[in-house]
Write a protein that binds this DNA or RNA. Structure first.
Lengths: 220, 220
DNA sequence: TAGATTGTTAATCGATTAACAATC
DNA sequence: TAGATTGTTAATCGATTAACAATC
């Protein structure tokens, strides 16, 4: 487990993409790849790929390229996917259920150990192999079970209060699907946001932009 | 409807954030705001905010700042949220259902007009006010109903074949929740990806990175 | 008018790309 | 050895920040 210094945000955000691509190559039985070949597949320049990988050390071999398997494993280690962070899910609605069922937490460095909701109709039901627990029992649960991270799949209005409770319990890493801005309340937390509304608006912009460009060219 | 030239990607990605913040201010009844005040709330520098907004024209007033309402509306227009792009959802599983129920398409420039699946158990069921249609009827539906965009909530392995059918039907804008890389097959499409796995891996990296930093400092 | 804050230009910073020596 | 491809430094490009004149 090393600590890498000054890894820039753009590099960090590209890491999962490298990992996915290498995983696919591995499945196909490809054993060796050059930065040029990766560049063709991924759309990054070969130069950038070599630059990125070298933040973490020399994984390649001059004149040969990179071993797909060892590069895949290295990037997995850099991402910390060999961890087993214990995560709880807050909110067992449609989105929460989808996240619980859909995600391979174990492959991503986590395991899901609890699901909470305050809706009596949902408490006691089973999702995956977990029983939905009353949100009132959050303190009891987190005291009895080491909890590293929480996933917010609840309405924006409910987040602040729950986050305050979790923070008091020492749970300070969040995967946030709500539109509540958690950084407003705390500055000693780690948050990864999934803003579906933002994503949809960006799609809207790109469609509109492309359409307008087309109209302009038709005018000429 | 204007076409803005050379808007950079970072700016585009910040637009929804501006929009959300201004919407909140509007709800609170705030009528006026300066770039400095926005900066404090949003974490961008005042300079960047003025720079961003000026890509689209002078919305502010020297000595006064910006009108929250008109700025909100302007950014909405820039994003193209006044459109009504007709979208269909492919895949009525947990994730598809969550997206269908959870998203306010109308507020984001879209309306959801159809949901498709190939699972007999799902075909005929109702989500929101829409009946899940047999995927076999995709061609029929898209011929009869103008369709602007498709949302992929199906397993990666199913995407390529469905995308080929949609592309042939002229549907070339995609909101992609699968991990299939649609740009491999087509270069005349617009894709906005939601990579939940990537997001979770980045959270894993940040937690691991913070933990390692802590251990290092404890060593000293 | 004086104060405030924008719009916009110039300076800085950082990330990407190009180039090439090192080396497998 | 010759060819290939990395690791790494230098050059370029673009985005962010700072500064300030314009102006409400």
């Amino acid at each position: 487990m090393h600590k890498y210094e000054n890894i820039s945000d753009p590099v960090i955000k590209r890491l999962p993409r490298y990992y996915r691509f290498l995983g696919e190559l591995l499945e196909k039985g490809v054993t060796r790849i050059s930065s040029k070949q990766l560049s063709d597949k991924m759309g990054f320049t070969a130069s950038q790929i070599r630059q990125d990988l070298n933040c973490f050390g020399g994984f390649g071999q001059q004149g040969y390229g990179y071993s797909v398997e060892s590069l895949y494993n290295e990037i997995g280690n850099i991402l910390g996917l060999d961890h087993n962070y214990k995560a709880i899910l807050i909110g067992a609605g449609n989105l929460g259920k989808a996240v619980a069922i859909h995600m391979s937490f174990e492959k991503r460095g986590f395991s899901l150990i609890g699901i909470f909701d305050n809706d009596p109709a949902k408490i006691g039901t089973t999702i995956r192999d977990l029983t939905v627990t009353d949100l009132d029992d959050l303190e009891k649960f987190c005291t009895e079970n080491k909890t590293d991270a929480a996933i917010f799949c609840v309405p924006k209005t409910a987040v602040a209060a729950i986050a305050a409770r979790l923070h008091a319990l020492g749970v300070k890493n969040y995967w946030n699907f709500s539109h509540y801005d958690l950084t407003i309340d705390f500055d000693d937390i780690i948050v990864e946001n999934v803003h579906l509304n933002d994503s949809l608006m960006i799609l809207c912009y790109r469609i509109s932009d492309a359409n307008d460009a087309q109209h302009l060219s038709e005018d000429q």
